[in-house]
Amino acid sequence: MAPDPWFSTYDSTCQIAQEIAEKIQQQNQYERNGENTIKLTVTIRTLLQNLKDKIALLKDLLLRAVSTRQITQLEGDRRQNLLDELVTRERLLVASFKNEGAEPDLIRSSLMTGGAKRGVPNPWLFEEPEETRGLGFDEIRQQQQKIIQEQDAGLDALSSIISRQKQMGKEIGNELDEQNEIIDDLANLVENTDGRLRTETRRVNMVDRKSTSCEKSHDLPVWSFLQKQHETEMIHRGS
């Protein structure tokens, strides 16, 4: 796996900050001994500018990684905390170099060895979690990369679940469409059958009316014949 450019830049930035602290301590020793510090001063100024540029690059890389979702929000917050600590160190180094806000010995002690015991915060001795305490930069980076991989695996599993649910939703939708088509076909069949039934009913009624008319027309001659026959019999009986 290719190294993360953010952590590579972070490691080199921390090394520059450490080098600046050592140079400031050396400069203070030269001043106490009355030695020339011009060369050291130029070196420290160059290193401070380099540190500033590196921090700006880290900010840009972090913003780009978060905005393009190359890292999770949790990892982005973790890297932002590391970056904030670097910014704090830079400010203390600049203050120490300019001898602002504290005596040189006190600032040097804070930067290099146990200044926190004398009431001055030590930027190099920030509280670490148990998981990273005593680990080097490479080991911390590997541990963070492992965490990122685990988070990515969790996101992949979640994405797989969502994909399956989406597929199930599509299949349910297709089945509902098929059932709706069947219902529409049944409705059309019932409507057509009902229309045919109405047509056949009208035909039956028409045939029935015609049959009734024919029966009545055939019954009239028979009745006249019987009436005439009865009148003839009555005449014969009278004579």
Rank of each mutant, 00 (worst) to 15 (best):
D11G: 06
S12T: 11
C14K: 05
Q15H: 04
I16A: 06
I24D: 11
Y30E: 05
Y30L: 12
I38K: 11
I38T: 14
L51I: 02
A56E: 14
L61R: 05
R64Q: 12
V66S: 09
S67C: 02
I71P: 00
T72R: 02
Q73M: 12
L74E: 10
D77I: 08
D77Q: 10
R78W: 09
L82C: 04
L86S: 06
V87T: 08
R89C: 09
E90V: 04
V94K: 12
K98H: 03
N99Q: 05
E100L: 15
E100I: 14
M112V: 15
A116V: 05
A116D: 04
R118F: 13
N122Q: 09
E127K: 11
L135N: 01
F137I: 09
F137M: 11
D138V: 07
E139W: 00
K146M: 07
I147F: 06
Q151N: 04
Q151V: 03
A153D: 08
L155Q: 12
A157I: 08
L158F: 03
S159D: 15
S159A: 15
S160W: 03
I161P: 01
S163P: 02
G169I: 04
G173D: 15
N174T: 07
E178Y: 03
Q179K: 15
D185S: 07
N192H: 10
G195F: 05
E200C: 02
T201M: 01
R202N: 01
M206A: 07
S211K: 10
T212Y: 02
E215F: 08
E215G: 04
S217K: 14
L220Q: 07
P221M: 08
L226P: 03
Q229N: 06
